[in-house]
Design a protein around this nucleic acid. Structure first.
Lengths: 339, 339
DNA sequence: CACGTTTATGAAACCGTTTTCATGTGCTAC
DNA sequence: GTAGCACATGAAAACGGTTTCATAAACGTG
């Protein structure tokens, strides 16, 4: 019944003009108390629900934020998404999430849809190197905040984690544990996150004067890949004592492989990851990793975005780098604080 | 630049009326080939992007679907959400996800927002017994599909899993393994899913003539709760050989507790769950559980919803019950197919 | 060749709001 | 007594599309 009740119906029922009803709804301008009462009664009686589509058209603002990210069903992103959503909802905005599977075509179509829907802003987790032009395209229309993965050449607010440093400190810890023969399973190197993590790892080895050249393998952040690269590492018989993975999912895959082969973790091979997804603390042995503040990244990016939307777009873009935290657990055997 | 380009600008540039431009955009009516060309050129030249807000207002359809669910950062829901999103996107709709933390107040506000935004339909995962009235309220305005948890007294499309049967078969398997002294950690009993799982468990015991009364504990589907109830079970010294949990997260919590207490799983106590979240196959020992087709549930519900939206709302509501699958892994020790 | 179709286009109403502007009170202050 | 201001309301123009209706040219076709 109430679905097609318009402001006009309310006005008629209350015996006033639609302007006055609009004032009551928005709490703007002057309205006599008795009139307000009449109108509120009419609204209740008719079960009136303001039409946000019309409002958006008229105001030129939809109060909708779009988020473009690889895949919510991938363990790292739900937390990040929740961070965005909470920040956005608490300010009266609504969130649309688009999954891209890190595919530029899907990113392209997501951008198009969001712009057509006239969202007030976009949070973008770039999936590929070609994403840059899409970020640019979007940012010509609305404020854009980039999370997690840096995008070159496009000036917009950015929230990242210090991947280099996280990786560096993790590596230092591993060296302290006595590891010298290490293997590294990287993520796709076109992602800034992958690059920096590998760089941090290498830099730490260099700075520590470790001569043994690490064996670097190239993965894609997936569980299965971690598993099969681990098998490969064993097959090659390199005498590796520690496998450093660019994310937790590959680390868990690697760990599982070693266990299937009867190789003790951490007794024979240590394994560690990056991200600290929920699973990391629940697998056995629990995974040593570098914790990314995913929720905070999402929330922070959303807040920066909203501020830019509401305060105006002219200020120069800001960039926030959050500090990751080394979380030492059982998969690297060494002592330290358990979590 | 292109953000404020309207259909009028395109019309002017192409030297035609806006009606004709609209025809080209929507591919409706007659348009001479040469005119179409001119208009398409103008669209490209101006970087015109149709305003969906205006279109929605005019057409009375937003092409947006709302999904109301407890929490995307909770492992069961991302997969379900992805199922909904894929189904919806492939038909040209966009998805808005609202997190409610199973709290009625947040459900209430989500329903209000979605109705104000004039979404074309809603997918609802009810969080509490009081959700029913909200489902009703929503379904008075737009088509609604209910997933996972049944809602009484509101006629709308429903997709669920046969929780009773899943639990029943799991229990039969456990009895076959020789377990007699069992503990059950239930979910919140106001949820239909929790009720049915417990009922299936009990029914199987009864049907199998097992006299030992099972010990039933009441949890809330959370990891920590599984952990602490497990400790309680041990403290009570009941001689339990198998702990059946109403979901995987509690099961993993319980398992971890046993391990922390030096109690072997499955050698001393078997543990099993329900859901088959990703984590279930990655923990050690891997978890025996009942797999819910979360993705398919989401996709199916979305498809039913879209069909109702596009074919009309009059047909009587349909209800689909999907079959869960028993997945036997290591946490119950017994042989069987490994996964 | 007169008439019904098909093809092609434009004018204008409509979707449900917000917002500006105009108008009209009733006070207060001088 | 009247200028000026706060209070209260309504009419009408946006916002950017879609869609109906009218008009007209081109096209068979009998």
């Amino acid at each position: 019944m109430s679905g097609n009740v318009t402001i006009r119906d309310v006005a008629r029922k209350a015996g006033v003009s639609i302007s006055t009803v609009s004032r009551v709804i928005n709490g703007t301008g002057y309205v006599r108390e008795s009139t307000r009462k009449k109108i509120e009664d009419a609204i209740r009686a008719l079960g009136y629900s303001p039409n946000h589509v019309a409002r958006s058209l008229s105001k030129g603002s939809t109060k909708i934020i779009g988020a473009i990210l690889p895949d919510i069903s991938n363990p790292f992103f739900p937390t990040l998404a929740r961070g965005i959503d909470d920040a956005v909802s608490s300010r009266g905005y609504t969130l649309i999430i688009c999954n891209t599977d890190s595919d530029v075509r899907q990113e392209e179509s997501s951008v198009r849809v969001l712009l057509e829907k006239r969202v007030d802003g976009v949070v973008f987790v770039a999936g590929s190197p070609e994403s840059a032009s899409l970020v640019r395209r979007a940012s010509e229309q609305v404020p854009v905040a980039v999370i997690d993965r840096e995008v070159e050449g496009v000036p917009c607010d950015t929230v990242t984690v210090d991947n280099f440093r996280g990786s560096y400190e993790l590596t230092r810890y591993l060296l302290n544990c006595g590891h010298r023969k290490m293997a590294y399973i990287s993520g796709p190197l076109h992602l800034s996150t992958s690059k920096k993590r590998l760089a941090g790892f290498r830099a730490c080895l260099r700075d520590s004067g470790v001569n043994d050249e690490p064996h670097v393998f190239h993965g894609d952040f997936k569980y299965d890949t971690g598993y099969s690269i681990a098998r490969e590492i064993i097959r090659m018989g390199l005498g590796i004592t520690c496998v450093v993975c660019a994310n937790d999912l590959m680390a868990i895959g690697a760990m599982r492989c070693f266990q299937d082969l009867g190789i003790g973790v951490p007794s024979q091979v240590a394994v560690c990851g990056f991200d600290d997804i929920t699973m990391a603390s629940l697998v056995r042995p629990s995974l040593t990793t570098v914790a990314q503040p995913a929720y905070r990244m999402g929330a922070l990016a959303a807040e920066m975005l909203l501020e830019r939307i509401e305060k105006g777009r002219d200020q120069s873009p800001r960039s926030r780098v959050l500090e990751p935290v080394l979380v030492i657990r059982d998969s690297t055997g060494g002592g330290g604080v358990k979590a």
